[in-house]
Amino acid sequence: MGIDIKFPIGLMFSILGLILTIFGLFTNADAVLYQRSLGININLWSGSGMLVFGILMLALAWKSRKTKTK
């Protein structure tokens, strides 16, 4: 009904992904912060993962919108 949910999902995960990626980049040297996550910069990883997922969803939303208007 009405909306294509792929669009808000894509948008939200792109925004969250971007924020966590940037945060991860800025805190990359912070060994204390990443002590808990076994020295892995988990923010960078999950941030970039979410960014890719978000962009993929946006692309799918854009594609299905195009086929609909045709």
Partner: peptide
């Protein structure tokens, strides 16, 4: 136990 600020919020 495992998540630093950021991933913890998620």
């Amino acid at each position: 136990q495992y998540l630093p600020a950021g991933a913890l919020g998620l």
